[in-house]
Simulated assay, not measured.
Amino acid sequence: MPQPAKRSRIAIGDTTITYLPDGFGAHNPDVLFPGVDWTTRPGRLQDGQLLLSFGSFLICAGDQRVLVDLAVGKIDVDVPGVAHLEGGALLQNLADEGLSAEDIDTVVYTHLHLDHVGWTSDVAPLPNGSATGSPTGLTFARARHLMSQDEWQYWSTRAAAMGGPDAEAVLKPLDGVVEFVKSGDTIAPGVTVEATPGHTPGHLAIVVRDPSGTRTESAYIVGDIL
């Protein structure tokens, strides 16, 4: 039976990419994929629900530690008719890698949908556009917080509309802190960003290569563009 994704790692030369789980959503498959006959896809559902995992990617490149996306945050909530969402394991999985929030040098967002920004501050945004309290600061306070300028400008005028970031829990804590990157920019040794707009106007992919050039393969962290 399907299970939420577990912590796992790949290496490109001396650079590692580790998936850090945060939680999962048990979704109504007919809402996500209307018209699909799931009887022709045995083993894809668990108790009639489609499981989707939430998490972040930790890139360790040289002495730099980068987190790609900040998952869903510490929530346990029903979205009636759509899904049940649970999160909150990211910091523990980071600790299991021997790291704390203070060890993260850079946070880079592929985009600002709510399941990618949940640990931005110490308050998790909820799917109904509200937050669980008033934030007191950024979770990864020592890190640079990067995204495309198009993404910031788009959501700054729309906030939580259509699954976007909560103004109190995400946008306000980032205001004045966020830095903008453009396609081709290097954010860590061998780590660059690539503009992949479509899913959102400022969506980015993160490209990881061996900075020494010894290994020729590359890895793409593609957010939701698939």
Rank of each mutant, 00 (worst) to 15 (best):
A89R: 15
A89T: 08
L90I: 04
L91Q: 02
N93T: 10
N93P: 05
L94C: 06
L94I: 11
D96V: 01
E97C: 15
G98F: 06
L99W: 09
D105G: 11
V108F: 01
Y109F: 14
H111A: 09
H111G: 03
H113T: 13
H113L: 14
D115V: 10
H116A: 13
V117Q: 03
G118P: 02
G118H: 08
W119N: 01
W119Q: 03
S121H: 00
P125W: 00
N128K: 08
S130I: 07
S130A: 15
A131P: 02
T132W: 06
G133K: 10
S134E: 15
T136N: 13
F140P: 00
A141L: 02
A141V: 09
A143M: 10
H145G: 09
M147N: 00
S148N: 07
Q149T: 12
Q149R: 15
Q153N: 15
Q153F: 12
Q153H: 14
Y154P: 10
Y154I: 11
W155S: 06
W155C: 09
S156H: 15
S156D: 14
T157K: 12
T157Y: 07
A160H: 13
M162A: 14
G163S: 08
G164H: 01
G164T: 05
E168S: 14
A169I: 05
L171S: 06
L171A: 01
D175G: 00
D175L: 12
G176H: 04
G176F: 05
V177I: 13
V178T: 12
V178I: 11
F180M: 14
V181W: 10
K182P: 00
G184A: 04
G184K: 08
P189L: 08
G190E: 03
V191S: 02
T192I: 01
T192V: 04
V193K: 02
